[in-house]
Every structure is written in C-alpha cells, then in structure tokens.
Amino acid sequence: MKKVVVVGSLNIDLTIKVDRMPKEGETIHGHDFLINTGGKGGNQAVASVKSCAETVLIASVGGDAFGNQIIESLKGYGISTDSIQLQKQDYTGSAMIICSDDDNRIILNPGANFSLDFDFVREKLDKIADKEDLFITQFENDFDTTLKVLEYAKTIGMKTILNPAPAKVIPDEFFKYIDILVLNQSECEVLTGIYPKTPEECESLGKAIRGKGTENVIITLGKVGSVTITPEEVIKMRAYKVDTVDSTAAGDSFIGALAAKLAFGDHLEEALEYATKVSAVTVTRKGAQIAIPTTEEVTEFFK
C-alpha cells in the first residue's frame, strides 16, 4: 500500500444557513451557525484517513487559538501534526460559508496558508514520500509555491492529484506534472472558457485539457455525477440521490477518498465508485471534516 500525502490549506470554517442570499446592503437572519475545522487540505486528508489510508498532511497554521483547535482536531482523526508549520506572526486561515438551497458560497481569508514555505514542504517530502505515493494539492496556499511543490512531487516520482480550487488558470508548462486533475464545472470554465452542463460537454473539454499534458481529467457535475477522461477510456459515474443537508466538503471528500482507494491499489473506476459514495454521504451531514464518513459508515449507508 502507498501513502497519501496532502499539501494544502487548514481553515476554521464559520458556516451559516440562510433561506436566500441577501441583496446588496441588506441584512437578513441566518440559522444553524457552526464553527468547524476545514480547509481543502485538511478536508482531503481527513477523507483519506477515514478511508483507512496512511495519510500525511503538510500544512500551516497561525499562532492563535484557532490554530491550536485545528491541531487538536487533526490529532483526533489520527493524522500526525509533525508536518504542520506554525506561523506565529499570522492568523490561521478562515472560511466564511453561506449555505442556501443545497449550495454554498465561500469567502476565504488565507492567513497562514499563504505562508507555507516551499523549502519546508520539500524537506518534509524528502523525509516521508516514496515513489508512487499519492500526492494531493489545491490552490488555497500561495499559487507559485503550490506549482513548485506540484512539480517537485512529480519529479521525485509521486502520483500527483491537483484540485485547482479556488479556480485559477494553470500555466501550460505545468499540466505535464499532473497525473489526475479533478475539477468542478466552475473550475473547468476558468481553464477552458466553457461551463460544461452535460457529460458529453465534459468529455469534450476533458479531452482538450488532456491534450495539454495531463494524464487523467475528472470533471464533477454535482448531482449529476462525474466524467473521467483517461488515455484508454471515458468513465461516466452517476451521483447517488440523497437528501442534501450541507454540500461544504463534498468535493474534498471525493478527492480524499479517491486517493485512498488508489493508494490501496484499486482500479480507477472502483476508486471513483467509492469516492462517489463518500461524497453522497458527506452532503447528508452538517459541516466539513465532521461530515466525512468512515469506510464502515459508507458500507452501512449503502446496504
């Protein structure tokens, strides 16, 4: 079995539900306020470890109470905090999440996430990473640093997974360092100029993205499912119909679970099927990391 190594963000999520989004200059009442540990890096690592994969998280927190809260939470999930960089001069990253109509809008304050140092990450990777280990990263840390880390991970033989969120244009020369690119419709629009609405559109756009050098492209379509374009085949995966409570960590749980199954040696289609189930269970619960199910809970849910 291979390890899953996540380099990414850690945030405190401040979530509130509203019946509708406020208009400009308007104040409205919300409900179901929740303070929760999150951040894409943290979420994906928790999803991986809850799917029983050996998981290492390389990240950064500030020297405040939120940073301590996140550290203790990660330990509770069984994730080593030896590779967490403490930035005493910064605040811990935070996310303001507004949920309405089974969807969410998120405002990020990067804080210590933007202070994660390339040399620190490289040193940790040199100590813990083996060839063919799964590597995951996103764009909630400093953009240039993330691209350098992605390139380095690929150079030392890791299997790289990039989730380009928040959406940014990826320089063409970096696509060759991405083994699996996982993006949603909005992120696909930023990369291609087209917002895909159907599996057929995803297939066409995925092939175009693959032409830039990425081996595999996975485009998620929310309640519709996902489309995966590989060198050999196109895999169309239907989403499961569930009662959505909170979609905050849906994508992150999918990616972490996918990586975990690949680390166990599962075929890509099998890993996609399992990740789709994990994401489905996640949206039936409130919060981010606390909402992500274990392997046993997934099995029980789909009995």
Rank of each mutant, 00 (worst) to 15 (best):
L150N: 09
S80E: 03
N43K: 11
G111H: 03
C99R: 04
A208W: 01
Q138S: 09
S186N: 08
I219T: 09
S80W: 09
L191M: 12
A257D: 07
N109S: 14
A291K: 10
P199M: 08
G287Q: 11
E26M: 02
I79W: 10
V121I: 13
N104A: 07
A257P: 06
K127D: 08
R285P: 00
R285H: 14
I178G: 08
D133T: 08
V283H: 06
Q87P: 00
E215T: 14
E200I: 12
K277Y: 07
S80Y: 06
M1G: 12
D19S: 09
F139S: 08
I156P: 02
E72F: 02
Q185H: 06
K127R: 14
K176R: 15
E140I: 08
S83T: 10
Q69L: 09
R122D: 00
E173S: 11
G76H: 03
E273V: 14
P166L: 04
L34R: 11
F143N: 04
T220I: 05
F66L: 05
Y152L: 02
E151L: 06
G25D: 01
T37P: 15
A263L: 12
G25H: 00
L10A: 14
D13Y: 04
M237R: 06
R20I: 00
I28F: 06
G222A: 15
L205C: 13
L134H: 02
G213K: 09
V217P: 03
T15A: 15
V283G: 02
K23C: 01
K159D: 05
D243H: 10
N68E: 15
H267W: 05
K159H: 12
L205W: 05
K17L: 00
I290L: 07
G42E: 01
E132R: 05
I156C: 02
E72L: 13
A280M: 01
D126A: 04
I16R: 01
L116T: 06
V182C: 15
Y195I: 01
I84N: 03
R122I: 03
I136Y: 01
Y240L: 09
S204P: 05
G213I: 05
P166D: 06
G63K: 03
L134D: 00
K168Q: 15
K131M: 12
I235P: 01
K261Y: 13
P199Q: 05
E187M: 09
K168P: 06
S204H: 08
I194Q: 11
D252W: 01
K40R: 12
D32G: 08
E24P: 03
D19K: 13
K88Q: 10
T146F: 03
T244D: 02
S186F: 12
L162W: 01
N216K: 13
K159E: 07
A167F: 06
L14V: 00
H267E: 15
T284G: 07
V61C: 10
R285I: 12
G41H: 03
V190M: 11
L147M: 13
D130N: 12
